[in-house]
Simulated assay, not measured.
Amino acid sequence: MIRKATLSLVLLYSTFTSFETSAQRIDSVGQLDGRTNTVNTAVPFLRITPDARSGAMGDVGLAIAPDASSIYWNLSKLPFATTKSSMAVTYTPWLKELVNDVFLATVSGYTQVDENQAISGSLRYFSLGSINLRDVTNQDLGDFHPREFAIDAGYARKLSDHFGVGFTARYIYSNLAGGQSVDNIAIRPGKAFAADISAFYTKEIEKDDGLVNKFNLGVAITNIGTRISYTSSAQSKDFIPTNLGLGTAYTLSLDEYNQLTFALDINKLLVPTPSRDSAGNPTNDYKNKSVLEGIFSSFGDAPGGAKEELQELMYSVGMEYWYNQQFAVRAGYFNENKNKGNRKYFTAGIGIKYDIFGLNFSYLVPSGSGIQRNPLSNTLRFTLTFDLGGRDEESRTGF
């Protein structure tokens, strides 16, 4: 499908800089005036939830039961998985209400080397379909197929019966308009390397009736890596979406067949907040920071002070109900401050498992008034899972 030229111009612009919404202004005492000051990064596809299970639970994933998509959320969960090996394939339509050829496809999986170690890998491929490129004089430059992908490999290990750690390495490739040029500046594919570090704590709580509840905690810093550029200019390098996530989950075993999990994730991007001068006008000073400087300064660089820093927190809450580990019902809610993107939405979905096969579905519905329109609005996405190893039938941890 060929889009209009205006979309092509937007795409070309995005290769040079992250989008900033309406400029936030700061008054004489440094307070917010209510306008947005969104924290933006390059390769935002890395923050798209790649599996339908978490997608149905408000995008939680840091502390829920491990599965084949854990490499995205928290790799350190995998040594505690009750299935020795598993694989997942997910298809996520993107902007389905506008176009039909933009999508995110994900393949991920893991295997436990022994009772203390696990290795995992994944591929995320984001296709932006086919775009007709035109220059400022409306001359046809031909069709182009922008695309991005990330390849991951990770290792996780138990340090005790209750605690584990994980490390993931990642290669990122982003080709949005390679081979084109703007103002005689050649555009090239962007490339970057990144890593995740994560930790996971789990504790079983045995009840008087012999059933077991479970309490989990998870933390992960993801996409710690090099800045990315689409030109040869050092000034055009952008930050990738380095993120700090903290999560918790509690699983209630209601009886032999029924299980209920509640989960909460809190996330914050560890990249600089767009800076402003004394008059409140945007500057590019924040782009001169190194990766490490950007990570550490992100906790206190917001022009609006502590109030604005707190606005940069994103909250996800989710629920998952299982019947006999064969049928699941899920729901959740995601909230982002109105000055930082204003994404607010409810999610819901189901999961079905038969023998080694599983199928998960999720659906997203935007909420609130004056909300940010979501690319996944009213979109059904699905994940197909395959359990390739043995399974502990005594455990009720999901898939």
Rank of each mutant, 00 (worst) to 15 (best):
L123G: 03
T111N: 12
I266S: 04
K77G: 14
L141S: 02
D33W: 07
G247C: 10
P44I: 01
V43G: 01
D51V: 11
E312V: 05
S253W: 08
V113Q: 01
G34W: 01
A68H: 04
N284M: 15
L12Q: 14
T41G: 06
T92E: 07
G179R: 08
G154P: 08
T41C: 07
G178H: 00
N184L: 08
E256Q: 10
G179I: 06
P66L: 04
T251N: 04
M87N: 14
I221F: 11
Q235N: 15
R157E: 02
Y286G: 14
L62N: 10
F167Q: 06
V291T: 05
L254G: 10
V317S: 07
D196E: 13
T261C: 07
K268C: 10
D183Q: 13
R53S: 15
Y363W: 12
Q31W: 05
N342K: 08
N360P: 05
I197M: 13
R147P: 01
V329C: 13
R381M: 02
L376V: 03
T106S: 08
G30W: 00
R188N: 13
S362D: 14
S85N: 08
Y13S: 15
Q24S: 15
T36W: 00
N360V: 07
D392M: 08
N116W: 06
V136D: 15
T248Y: 08
A192E: 10
R373T: 15
Y321C: 14
D101P: 12
T231R: 05
G247A: 10
E97L: 14
V317G: 11
R343K: 04
I2V: 07
A169H: 10
V102Y: 02
E312M: 13
N37D: 09
V182E: 09
F144L: 12
G294Y: 03
D255Y: 00
F215D: 03
T379Q: 07
V317N: 07
L104G: 01
R124C: 04
D209K: 01
T251P: 00
K203Y: 10
V43K: 01
T283N: 00
T226K: 03
S369C: 02
D161P: 09
A56I: 14
S85E: 06
D387W: 02
N378C: 03
H145Q: 06
R53E: 13
R396D: 01
G121V: 07
Y315V: 11
I205L: 09
Y257A: 14
G179Q: 10
D67W: 09
F163D: 02
S232M: 00
I151G: 11
K158F: 03
S367M: 13
G245E: 05
P146Y: 01
I119E: 07
S298A: 15
L359M: 08
A56V: 13
N288E: 05
Q325W: 01
E320F: 02
A88K: 12
T106Y: 00
A68F: 02
A118V: 04
N116E: 04
I295K: 06
G166R: 00
T82V: 12
G368R: 14
F346G: 07
G154Y: 05
